[in-house]
Design a protein around this nucleic acid. Sequence first.
DNA 1: CAATAATCGAGACGGTACGTCACGTCTTCTT
DNA 2: AAGAAGACGTGACGTACCGTCTCGATTATTG
Lengths: 219, 219, 219, 219
Amino acid sequence: MRQKSPAQRHGDNGGRKRAPGRPRSEQARLAILRSTLKLLGENGFSDLTIEAVAAHASVGKATVYRWWPNKAALIADAFASSTTRKLHFPDTGSVRADMSQQMRQVIKIFRSRRGRILSAILAAGQSDRDVIAAFRERFMKPRRQDAYATLRRGIARGELGKDVDLDLLLDSLYGPIYMRFLIRHDNLTPNFVDGVCELVFGGARPGRKLRARGRRSDQ
Amino acid sequence: MRQKSPAQRHGDNGGRKRAPGRPRSEQARLAILRSTLKLLGENGFSDLTIEAVAAHASVGKATVYRWWPNKAALIADAFASSTTRKLHFPDTGSVRADMSQQMRQVIKIFRSRRGRILSAILAAGQSDRDVIAAFRERFMKPRRQDAYATLRRGIARGELGKDVDLDLLLDSLYGPIYMRFLIRHDNLTPNFVDGVCELVFGGARPGRKLRARGRRSDQ
Amino acid sequence: MRQKSPAQRHGDNGGRKRAPGRPRSEQARLAILRSTLKLLGENGFSDLTIEAVAAHASVGKATVYRWWPNKAALIADAFASSTTRKLHFPDTGSVRADMSQQMRQVIKIFRSRRGRILSAILAAGQSDRDVIAAFRERFMKPRRQDAYATLRRGIARGELGKDVDLDLLLDSLYGPIYMRFLIRHDNLTPNFVDGVCELVFGGARPGRKLRARGRRSDQ
Amino acid sequence: MRQKSPAQRHGDNGGRKRAPGRPRSEQARLAILRSTLKLLGENGFSDLTIEAVAAHASVGKATVYRWWPNKAALIADAFASSTTRKLHFPDTGSVRADMSQQMRQVIKIFRSRRGRILSAILAAGQSDRDVIAAFRERFMKPRRQDAYATLRRGIARGELGKDVDLDLLLDSLYGPIYMRFLIRHDNLTPNFVDGVCELVFGGARPGRKLRARGRRSDQ
DNA sequence: CAATAATCGAGACGGTACGTCACGTCTTCTT
DNA sequence: AAGAAGACGTGACGTACCGTCTCGATTATTG
């Protein structure tokens, strides 16, 4: 996804020899990614042009096209390369507190300038499956791994039922955030995060599931 | 949003006289909206061109631009005008069953051809606040009104706490659906809907709230 | 040329009845012609639009099209209707003085704002034979008639040869003026007019013709 | 006039380096000029569209606009580039014969398909001073230089007065031709050319001037 | 050290769609 | 029936980017 085939010449080719010819300019690569992020943050996805990226990065247009097959790939790559800030899951001894604190970090990012880039990516992803796949793989997946660990600690401590569906639980926690973020229909506040945790963890505490099913079958 | 200013001449102008000049062609308007939906469903947002819409509707390009300021407005209008199918909230006597059944209808639509249109709108909305506002006003808001009524019946029956935050509850129910829909990270199945209801309604049943808060303050 | 067929209903139809329906608005007709001249003088032929003429005359576009088949006809008509100023041929007793004085009037007009209109007409005439024909009929022909009379007085007085070709003579006098006017390659001055008269009348005096031919046959 | 500023990079820049970037395509340039002439000859100025020129030349529209600022410049350039045919001034030993023969060549061209192009240029020139300037510089001026030489030979031979105004003389010879050509009010025939020469050279023979002035002061 | 090879910035190329403008026609109500 | 108003389908305008290409220049490896 990240690069076109010629770039594979420069990958991790172990002890093999370097390819002949002038090597790829790392400087150009970084300038392009930086310019992409900058312009994305300023004008959103639809106003981002390769022409502007190249000009802003003082780079030939062909250099962009040589390494990225299309705008979506460029954006995905730029976004991935920018995941500098760590979204940390603490270990307070309470799943809910752990999750809640991380979710507060998330909404902070969503409301920052990086949120604009993120929404541009998700927008681009609606008509390009590579972009959305890149988002999942590079942004969501690593965080999910951490979240699994946090949730499993909760299960071990008996705060959550043993048979809880982790993805269902995580989608239920983060889905409301994404909804408010993307549809912008209300403020993304810490209070809102608390409310969601309240509801979802309230429904996820051990022993509830059976009773819930029971209640449902009663109807 | 729907129309540019000149169109206001044709709106509900009460007892006033009709505007002079040839009236707007209702036939052209409908043909444009129909063509927009058709092409949107076929090729997604980024491949939709006004030129193609006009050609497909056998209409002059200027006629499109006369009434819609940009592609986003056109899409929003087309989408709004197409909300023919009713998303019904039943009244089974159980909030959770009512909501669950409606949510199953929702995911059915999301997974249909209309889902493609919807995701195109939400994508367009990320760089155009008018589009996202139109989506909220014309698609989401009417359904929220119905949902409020359903939830209030649940409160009246004692299935939900009296002080429950309706918007928080609804975002917690629909957010996970939107998340899976837009990020496409997993299947949108009836089972998933059940799981979300299980969690959220489990946390929203009366009497839970106080205990939840108590637990939290323990930390 | 001036008007489309329906207009013939309004011509001088002797004692016959007037056509039924609302009669043509003389006010609109004049406003259109005036606006045409004004806009022609301001922006030249290529920038003149029927749309602008109609708007400037506070007239419906269809009213223009009802009476004039195209822009060229409108311009020709507007120009013809504006030939208010008389271009007078004096009778001083000398052909050359008579012509010279009239030609000075001509260059005065050519150099005025009306000259811009005139050049617009001649330009339009290059791709529309109706326009150039209208120019000849309505502008040039009446003046030619007067010029013939002036020249014939010169013949009668013996200032010009009896067998002189009047059109050749007039073209030789006015051609240089039109050339400098249209190609704008030098100033159109009274001195220039004098020089042309000097040359042409010098070659047109009686008795010259034979000698000239004789010289030519010497070669 | 011929080209926009960027083109200056490709001009005769002495010993300096070539400009960077892909060089201008000579093939495209020629195809555009050829297509312009062809379409001009077929349909006249007002029906000539840049779109058609580009299509006919199998060239992008932007390539036309990159090098010519507007239709008039394109036409002027196309015309100038096509001045292949030499309009020769012979040297028969008689000015009048020399001029007469060249003028016959001129009217031959004016009456050919190239005459259509020429009248289109002069028409365009009425609302665009660059066009008329280009016509003067590139078409008229070179011929004037030759004509001056011819006339000076006549002066040297004593056929013309020493103090004759060359431009006045030439305008008097060619003006009538342009007049009949542009106003199309009569045929452009060799006979007409002879008549004009008769008149004008009759008035320009040496010794005439003083007497003419004398006559004039008699009045 | 020369030859080879792939990169670089630059920018012209053939295209496509943009959003605007004027065309000439039409449909409404008013005079 | 003609008028003003103004929407209609049409098509060219001139612009902006697309993704490709051709330049000369640069920077590496290979012989």
